[in-house]
Write a protein that binds this DNA or RNA. Structure first.
Length: 480
RNA sequence: UCCUCCUUAGCUCAGUUGGUUAGAGCAUCUGACUGUUAAUCAGAGGGUCGUUGGUUCAAGUCCAACAGGGGGAGCCA
């Protein structure tokens, strides 16, 4: 029976003393042959276990190494030392799992994030990743909490999908056909999928949006929160081949309703983490602070992590149109002095990272919602504005990360939608099921997509997206 | 995919204009120490210098290709 154990977080929080308790966890350090720092993942704070001289045999003490799993029972007492309020005076210690100190790669010292990424299966046991993944969980919970309280229905959209026409990116093929060249072929040399598992070509999903729209046409407000796959050869600090995405879709919403929801949503989940994971965020803030000190003065951020999150919660996001953004950029000294690699000269061009960063980090110094982009640079399903040039799109740009949300009011007028699909060479036959939303009881609706790992990055302050998902998948990397 | 930097002990790094036996701190091991906080002190072990090929009397050091990693860009969330 293991249920008698008390979690270290609870034990430390209560500050009660003079009672018997059992703790279980993994040894961080064993100092002076006397003090064990034990961690069980409930908090970054360790419980100090005091080992009385002569109370345990030498052989047992030798097995208490960094990484070993132990069970310790004893009396919780007020600590005689300075670093903690309470500690456990052990009367019994059982080694549940040995850890060979010569082979265990984690040491009681600072490790680089790059090294820890190579041992992703063990990095959970560090303070940094302990905090990151507790915060990740809090955000995940807060997302379901937010939408549930608003009466949204969570929809599980398919992970294997037949449509490959969404244009959201390169897809991973799903097949059971042999890969040695013996798969059946059509006359033109392409693979014949008639005898494949699904009887047709299938892929891993790049977005649940189209299916989500179907559900919104029945439930009104829905959201999806699931894994998404992109086979893009992207090697950056903010892209993954497998990531989690939140995609709400709302009937009877226009672009402004959509923006209001997205802003309220982001603020809610950040506030939830601030209220429930303060200790972890403070640890991450300190970590980031030390990292920033290594940088030259002009590259350091003006705000600490906690400060930044509070600022985002307490201020309105800046809302401007694409056209206004182009004006601001064109008139900026930065542009006039030709400091942009891509000079802003005319309306219609897509904004580069440097431009987005300038708007968010230099000009407004807060999250920015950009709206009404030229239709040429946006997806087919976005609603065309009356000017004939722009669509009702909105992107939310966050400092340090860039695009965190992409959304739009959807084109509910079937003639306009089909016309746009043809212009963009999107096969209407394949998406006939999607067009049914516009044939039977179409209504104005809107939605957006938010990359979960990007918001986790923003809230934890981690610089590389590979460090906010337990086992990251990216080009040339699918270990563990 | 493109640009750029990097790869030396388990980890983080030093290694001079190419020149004998490649160093440090931490970790590990052995011993000491009973109120430590990434404990401390003494000692010990630990390296095909990313891989392959080339230049040279001589390569950790110079050149090339490849692999892996960091940063930036593109694609995007």
């Amino acid at each position: 029976m293991f249920s008698t154990r008390i979690k270290i977080k609870e034990l430390l929080l209560s500050e009660k003393v003079n009672y018997q308790a059992t703790v279980m966890g993994w040894v961080r350090t064993f100092r002076n042959n006397q003090f064990i720092a034990l961690n069980d993942g409930s908090t970054n704070n360790n419980i100090q276990i005091v080992v009385a001289l002569g109370a345990f045999d030498e052989a047992t003490l030798k097995r208490i190494t960094t990484g070993a799993c132990i069970k310790a029972t004893g009396e919780v007492i007020a600590s005689l030392g300075k670093g903690q309020k309470v500690e456990l005076k052990a009367t019994a210690i059982e080694v549940l799992g040995d850890s060979d100190a010569e082979k265990f790669p984690l040491q009681p010292k600072k490790h680089s994030l790059e090294f820890l990424r190579e041992i992703a299966h063990l990095r959970f046991r560090t303070n940094t990743f302990g905090s990151v993944f507790r915060v990740r969980h809090a955000l995940s919970f807060a997302i379901h909490d937010f939408f549930t309280k608003k009466g949204f229905i969570g929809i599980h959209t398919p992970i294997i999908t037949a449509s490959d026409a969404e244009g959201a990116g390169e897809m991973f093929k799903v097949t059971t056909l042999p890969l040695d060249g013996s798969a059946p072929k059509n006359e033109d040399g392409t693979i014949n999928f008639k005898d494949d598992f699904f009887g047709r070509s299938t892929n891993l999903t790049v977005s649940g949006q189209l299916e989500g729209e179907l559900a919104a046409m029945a439930f009104g407000n829905i959201y999806t929160f699931g894994p998404t796959f992109r086979a893009e050869n992207s090697n950056t600090t903010r892209h993954l081949a497998e990531f989690w995405m939140i995609e709400p879709e709302m009937a009877f919403y226009d672009l402004e309703d959509n923006m209001n929801l997205a802003e309220e949503f982001i603020k809610h989940i950040i506030r939830y983490a601030m209220d429930n994971n303060r200790e972890d965020l403070e640890f991450l803030a300190q970590r980031l602070d030390e990292e920033e000190k290594q940088k030259p003065q002009n590259e350091r951020s003006e705000m600490g992590l906690i400060e930044k999150l509070e600022f985002v919660i307490n201020n309105n996001f800046e809302r401007i149109t694409y056209t206004e953004a182009i004006e601001i950029l064109r008139e900026s000294n930065h542009n006039k002095k030709k400091k942009f690699q891509y000079i802003i000269d005319k309306w219609g061009i897509d904004l580069q990272s440097e431009h987005e960063r300038y708007l968010v980090e230099k000009h407004f110094k807060k999250p920015v919602i950009l709206t009404n982009y030229p239709k040429e640079i946006k997806a087919f399903y976005m609603r065309q504005n009356d000017d004939g040039k722009t669509v009702a799109a909105m992107d939310i740009l966050a400092p340090g990360i860039g695009e965190i949300v992409g959304g739009s009011q959807r084109e509910e007028r079937i003639d306009k939608l089909v016309e746009r699909m043809k212009e963009m060479h999107i096969p209407t036959e394949e998406l006939d099921w999607y067009l049914d939303t516009r044939r039977f009881g179409a209504c104005p609706h809107a939605g957006f997509g938010l990359g979960f790992e990007r918001i986790v990055q923003f809230v934890t302050g981690m610089g590389n997206i590979r460090d906010v998902i337990p086992f990251p998948r990216y080009p040339k990397s699918a270990s563990f």
